[in-house]
């Protein structure tokens, strides 16, 4: 077996497995199992990235999607009532919309791959150029921090703004009603009398008079 056919076989496995897992994501009923299938998709896509000699992308893909985003999905779902979620109808009114969007994406995919195959359209960053930079990590660094530095910085500012926004939204209100444990005794008593509608002439004058 030549290395060429071996690579094709490995690619076939990754491609097939990622499609199978993607189908499982929408077909399984238990949301936790769906999320795990999504992890399977992410892993097999990373495998395809490695076959394309984009190791950095593969590692970043796993760190960000599998290591952070889907873990957060799972965090939320672990605290749901899974039994109730499993009984929800699986395909509902959004299905036609999903079909339309899916068709548009599929068309775009056909056009792009078709252009590459038929007329040999290529971007400026060919495999030869990447090899000339000394590997894909170096090439990516060159592109991100030299050619596209401004968009990169803008994106980082945007992300920082989003983080600050999330903290501001999640922060507790500074003025909240005080709990009884933080009140003094007389204050607490006064509040209880107020609630019980006891006339002020019938109230003891201070906390000492209550006899503690």
């Amino acid at each position: 077996m030549t290395s060429e056919t071996l690579l094709t076989l490995i690619f076939a496995y990754f491609a097939l497995a990622s499609v199978v897992f993607a189908v499982l994501v929408i077909m399984l009923r238990n949301p936790v199992q769906c999320a795990l299938s999504l992890v399977g998709v992410v892993f097999h896509l990373a495998g395809i990235f490695i076959l394309l000699r984009a190791e950095f992308l593969a590692a970043a893909h796993i760190i960000i999607y599998a290591g952070a985003i889907i873990v957060l999905f799972l965090f939320t779902m672990m605290l749901l009532n899974i039994g109730a979620v499993e009984r929800v109808r699986q395909f509902h009114v959004q299905a036609p919309l999903a079909i339309v969007i899916g068709a548009i994406l599929f068309l775009e995919f056909i056009v792009l791959t078709g252009a590459t195959i038929t007329i040999g359209a290529q971007g400026p960053h060919s495999p030869a150029w990447v090899a000339g930079q000394g590997g894909n990590v170096q090439a990516l660094g060159q592109v991100l921090f030299r050619d596209y530095l401004l968009p990169f910085e803008v994106a980082s500012v945007l992300l920082t703004a989003a983080v600050v926004g999330a903290i501001v939204l999640a922060r507790q209100r500074p003025r909240r009603p005080r709990s009884s444990s933080e009140m003094g005794v007389s204050e607490w008593m006064a509040e209880r009398y107020e609630k019980a509608n006891v006339r002020s002439s019938n109230r003891p004058n201070s906390a000492e008079e209550i006899g503690d």
Partner: peptide
């Protein structure tokens, strides 16, 4: 990446 996956 592998340490971040171990959390699963």
């Amino acid at each position: 990446a592998l340490t971040s996956v171990a959390v699963y």
